[in-house]
Amino acid sequence: MKGSLRSITEWLVKPRGILEFSLAVVIIISVNLTVFALLSPVKALKQVNNMPTENTLQQTSRFAPTPEISRLIREKAFYESRLKMAKTDSLVLSVNLPDSILSVEIMGIPIHTIPLNKFETPDFFRLIDNKIVQTRFSEPQQILNAHATTLKEPIRVVHAPKDTNEYNTTVADNNYDTARLRLSFVEYETNEKIRLLFIPIDERSLRHWRTDFAFNIKLSWRSFKQNLKASLQFKVPEYYPIVKIYLPHSDIESIHRALPENALVSIHLN
């Protein structure tokens, strides 16, 4: 026993031994992660499609899932959700993917409407049963987590001058909003485990790539941690379908600054 332990230690101490050991660990982790990552959308779909539906929806269950009926069910759910959001007096977000329109609303009044020229939706939404769509998506979703490269409130602290002399000497341009220099990458995570990722499209500079890379690393690290934690416990990790929305930087910033913490969101699925 002692001898075998010593031989393992000696093997590990060698540079190649460390490499081979690391390789073995990484192979085990990657196989584990792959298996659990592939199981997670299956589990998520099963969970979603097995959710209880309201009795009032029995009527729609008789419909064959033709594209036209699916479209109507999803559209109705979207407007019902928006009507519910309109009853609150706060700023909310509505994402209409089939009509390619995104808008910030308050009490049913669209105040900032943006056409969506480019977006990507996962096919996961197409796999959801119409009955579930009508029940789950006719309710507004709530933003639980937000990650952004821009500040919601770019507050700057200024200490009051002691007298008018100090005021006159420090009156230099204090009014410039430095937060505007940042590029806005924003990700919202809703209570329905949907992630809305806003990516700026109007700038393709080194600064854009750098911010994009740093933001992606941050998001990948978070997913990696979540997946690894779950898979090491032999649990299937949560699956988060990601809707990627490409918008001009100014629009992303306006949306992010407009929405309060835990704002409501309504998503019209395509």
């Binding site: 192979i27 990657s30 992660l33 792959t34 299956v42």
Partner: peptide, 21 residues
Amino acid sequence: LCFYVFFGVQNLQELFVKLMY
């Protein structure tokens, strides 16, 4: 493998969902 674990798993997941549809 480190790159795959960090960046690739999610893409593989999306590809798998695409195949499910």
